[in-house]
Amino acid sequence: MRDVTYLRPKDLQDAVQLSRTTPGCRPLAGGTDLMVMLHARTLRPAPRAILDVWSLSELKGVRRVDGMLEIGAAESYTGIIRSAEAQQHLPALVAAARTIGAAQIQNRGTLGGNLANASPAGDTLPVLLAYDAVVVTDRRSIAIDRFFTGYRHTALQSDELITAVRFPLDRQVVFRKVGTRAAQAISKVVIAVCRQPARVAIGSVAEVPLRASGAEAALASGDVAGAIAAVTADIRPIDDVRSTATYRQAVTQNVLRELLRQ
């Protein structure tokens, strides 16, 4: 880390400029993933600079924009949990934020970071999929279902900065995370479901957070049992350090059954 340059932009425009002109630059928000990887030197390619976007006021806050709710990319989970707008319109996102880490992580973790890190186990990501969220960057808007392109790969260009995430206001989404313990746990399975339109989004069951298309099709036609049956073919879970494929198959069905019963 000693050879990594620290850059503190004065505003978003400055950040965009630095991002475009600094080779090997990685944006740093709350650091809950990036600082771990920097210290352990596991990032490839190794970054040469970190661009600190944590304090940029343009990336903070929860606000209404064009009939949608917009959350700044560097707003903390704590900020989301405390936001009256988020509580009212995005209760599933608030619920997901509350399951992430504990106070220390909620105070630093951000939607922008969760998106850029693109872990298949990212706790908020299925929620974003179920809401049909839109990822806003310094240059464009990306529909969430086109954002994840492969294992820890995204549609972002190397110098592109996530600035916000937008959510529709009228969705009824429910959420459930299955982890090993009550706090500070990375998920074994994480599911977010919307009935209308039909969305079944699942994390930790494939190389990316995914939409379960078979289950959604069944759900769209009102076939709840069919959705529960179909979901096993939608997911591609593996055995890893956190769980087994067999468990993830069984529990995805069990949890989906519970969520659809609500």
């Binding site: 504990a102 090993t180 313990r181 009550a182 706090a183 500070q184 746990a185 990375i186 350090v241 956190r242």
Partner: peptide
């Protein structure tokens, strides 16, 4: 050991 970090070797928290 696959569980060779505190993110993968889990002990009970105050909530557990």
């Amino acid at each position: 050991y696959q569980n060779d970090r505190l993110a993968t070797y889990l002990i009970p928290t105050a909530l557990d």
